[in-house]
């Protein structure tokens, strides 16, 4: 039951992009095509899930026993950055086709605040390990959902008759705002 609550909360009610406004950079940057958007979504899902597990271990095995909770941010960034590097090497060796598909988005995740936000939220909400993993998975599904929906809309916007002054980024921002308002409709569900 708890897991279901986390799932709905992370995917819809507190969607990372549209409600918490985390990870806006890739949301706007790589959402011009559905194909690349889903590639980014996959890469983020991969890193988010792994990062939430490892930061959980770092938090409760290293930082808390030593009373160093105030070093959380810098320690987590260290974890995420090395993790992304490692994942990149691993995928390059084990599955070149997946590496090709993810392309440049993989290293970009290093500085993605959605990942750091997720790991810090995990600690704040005092989740246990299972809940942490569930939160990571569903938060990244929520991220993918938002970015793929947005990419679908932008593909259509590209051929729509948008007023000259609103073409490109302005209409994308307006669309993002409208999507965020739409997702507000889920508020109070959990």
């Amino acid at each position: 039951m708890e897991i279901l609550k986390i799932a709905i909360s992370a995917m819809l009610v507190n969607n990372f992009v549209l409600s918490r406004f985390l990870g806006i950079c890739p949301f706007l940057g790589v959402s011009k095509k559905v194909e690349t958007a889903s590639g980014m979504g996959m890469a983020v899902a991969f890193v988010m899930t792994l990062a939430s597990v490892i930061t959980y271990i770092v938090q409760y095995a290293v930082l808390e026993p030593l009373g160093l909770a105030y070093l959380q941010t810098i320690a987590f960034i260290l974890v995420i950055a090395s993790l992304v590097q490692f994942v990149e090497m691993f995928i390059k060796k084990s599955s070149p086709s997946l590496y090709e598909a993810l392309g440049v988005y993989l290293p970009l995740i290093t500085t993605n605040c959605a990942v750091l936000g997720l790991t810090i939220l995990n600690i704040q909400e005092e989740f246990n390990l299972i809940e942490t993993i569930a939160h990571g998975i569903f938060a990244s599904i929520g991220f993918s959902l938002a970015i793929i929906l947005f990419a679908g809309i932008r593909e259509r916007l590209a051929i729509a008759d948008v007023p000259k002054s609103l073409e490109g980024a302005p209409i994308a921002l307006i669309t993002a705002g409208l999507m965020s308002i739409a997702f507000l409709g889920f508020a109070g569900l959990v």
Partner: peptide
């Protein structure tokens, strides 16, 4: 403590990489 622990973590991840 923070120097050793963070340094240790860094060293660990660095050598891992």
């Amino acid at each position: 403590k923070p120097i050793v622990s963070l340094g240790g973590l860094g060293l660990l991840f660095g050598s891992g990489l």
